[in-house]
Amino acid sequence: MEKSASKQPPPTTTAEKYRNNFLREVEDNVEEGEWVKMCIQCGVCSGSCPLGSAWEHPPQELFMMIRAGQREQVLRSDSMWMCTSCYNCIVRCPRQLPITHIMHGLANYAHRLGIAPAQNPTRRFAKIFWDNIAHSGRVNELLLSIKLYFMNGFGEGIRMAYHMAGMGFAMFKTGRLDPFGLFMHKGIDNAKELQTMLTKAREIEDRRRGLGLGVAVKAD
């Protein structure tokens, strides 16, 4: 493999305009990144997105920015974090680009590099969810909800909990919510083994992409 350190440039590197080095970086490091070059700028993805208006840079524009070498603008953008995996864009793309996967890939790559927007709620939810499920192998729903409620501070959390109290009580009555689950969450048997598997999977994945272990994974 001729993959070298240059494939993993430090976050501050500026890509040269329209010179493909960022495109190549994306191809090498982003899930399904090799599809970016196939975009014909028709914009059907951007128009198909149900959350489209929330995107500063819609997918097709991100693809053009990648080709134009706008590395910082792309990776620091919160746009790809807007994707909710509805797959509208994928089914309509005339070039069959796996746009949803590329968006997640870009988000993931930016996260790994540690330059993803720190306060992006999608990113924070993803992290809370992941920590939650990876801990025991099964989602602790009550804990997840509480962590989400209090994600933006104590006062906001109380307000949120109060707002949702009616629904919580109704769920409790119908047996859909177990308050004891907060302390006595039943994870899968041998969650330790799951964590070993996940670590191994990450190693394999990183090696496949030519990433050095743990370079940016820790970045929060």
């Binding site: 028709c42 914009g43 059907v44 951007s46 128009g47 208006s53 819609p58 309509r92």
Partner: peptide, 28 residues
């Protein structure tokens, strides 16, 4: 400049509404 994403009908008058993005400068 846009591949139209979707067409919906305005049921009140039968008009069609085209949704999409003009990719020359990103106009929804």
């Amino acid at each position: 400049k846009s591949k139209v994403a979707s067409v919906v009908e305005d049921s009140s008058n039968g008009d069609v509404i085209l949704h999409g993005v003009n990719t020359e400068g990103y106009h929804r």
